[in-house]
Design a protein around this nucleic acid. Structure first.
Length: 353
DNA sequence: AAATCGGGGTC
DNA sequence: GACCCAGATTT
């Protein structure tokens, strides 16, 4: 084993984070085994999502569905509502689909084989490796965005990460140990989070700075090299907050595919780069669209004008509409955009009375 | 290789 | 504001 590897593992034992899905290196040594189910759930939630955001969702998820069998029996809308606020909602549908497939094909046991893992929906190269190394204590080299940053700095790779995946893979082979691969991997993640941060890494406290070529050359600020990003276009539209005499409101479940797929939403127009025409979804007394809601997605900004409608009785035009009681609607089952709409809509509706 | 798919923490 | 986070999947 290399010096770098030993230094990192020792640092991980001392400074590593305690996380709900993680078995500490001490407990691992006593023979306590990780729960592959928890590792799987955590890895799905952690895709492009920070640890601090995931922790409360993870704890509640495990409380609700403590194993594959239980999860497989859950209702899709239940899982999606649970996932609301976490983002990337295809993960919610995929984790349920995977649970069912694991019941059918593998008798409820999460498979260890890489190709079987990767064939499950929502599990790609990284997640399969992570489940194997962390959950099953296999020797898979596991590389995520954090570890890519560490490796490019360690080996002073001066090409942007998206063009240097092959080199990163080769360098990773040089430092990943055959034993305690999961600990090493998680140690790198913790190092990336605590020390080797995207900006202003704390190299004075880094256990492997003596092996770091970027540190040696004073280039930790310029590596990894970042590529300029495209500006986000702005899309516009209307969102309709329609309230009834007995405090019922009109909502809609979005189709599974696409943005906010499967989530509960307020009815809205299309979202286009040119503001669409204002067409009301239902007969009501409509306000002027003065108030705006701003929201930012991964690849566009959204400006929604809120239109409040007061209806006597609902005459439903579309079958996808669902009527909810305003006061018993739990905003926790809404995506963040629709939470904003709910708050604004409530305020505006109150002003009108 | 680029686009799609959320939301929030951090500096 | 810009950047990025234990990425996967489709185009």
């Amino acid at each position: 084993m290399q010096k770098l590897t030993r230094s990192l593992l020792r640092w991980y034992e001392k400074k590593g984070r305690r996380l709900p899905w993680r078995i500490s290196p001490y407990d691992l040594k006593t023979g306590i085994k990780p729960d592959p189910y928890k590792v799987w759930v955590s890895e799905i939630m952690l895709q492009q999502t920070t640890v601090s955001t995931v922790i409360p969702y993870f704890n509640q998820f495990i409380e609700e569905w403590c194993n594959v069998a239980q999860l497989s029996k859950a209702d899709q809308n239940e899982i999606i509502s649970f996932w609301a606020g976490l983002g990337y909602y295809s993960r919610a549908r995929n984790i349920l689909r995977s649970a069912k497939e694991i019941m059918d094909k593998y008798q409820g046991e999460i498979p260890e084989e890489k190709d079987k893992l990767k064939s499950l929906p929502g599990i790609g190269e990284y997640t399969a490796s992570a489940i194997r190394s962390i959950g099953f204590q296999k020797s898979d080299i596991t590389i995520d965005g954090n570890i890519e940053r560490i490796i490019t700095r360690l080996f002073r790779i001066e090409t942007p990460i998206r063009f240097s995946k092959k080199i990163i893979q080769k360098k990773a082979k040089l430092i990943f140990p055959k034993n305690r691969t999961g600990d090493f991997c998680q140690g790198l993640m913790d190092l990336a989070n605590i020390i080797c941060k995207p900006r202003k890494p704390i190299c004075t406290e880094c256990p492997i700075s003596s092996f770091c070529e970027s540190f040696k050359e004073g280039e930790t600020d310029s590596i990894p090299v970042k590529v300029p990003k495209k500006p986000k276009p702005i899309r516009k539209g209307f969102v309709y907050f329609v309230k009834n005499n007995d405090n019922k409101i009109l909502m809609e479940r979005r189709p599974d595919e696409g943005l906010l797929g499967g989530l509960l939403a307020f009815p809205s127009s299309d979202w286009l780069e040119n503001e669409p025409d204002l067409v009301f979804p239902i007969d009501a007394e409509w306000s002027q669209p003065f108030d705006k809601i701003m929201h930012e997605f991964t690849h566009f900004k959204l400006e929604l004008k809120v239109v409040v409608g007061m209806a006597g009785k609902f005459h439903i035009k579309k079958s996808t509409y669902e009527v909810f009681d305003l006061h018993s609607l739990d905003e926790s089952q809404l995506p963040t955009l629709m939470r904003k709409v709910l708050r604004k809509g409530k305020k505006l509706a109150n002003q009108k009375i």
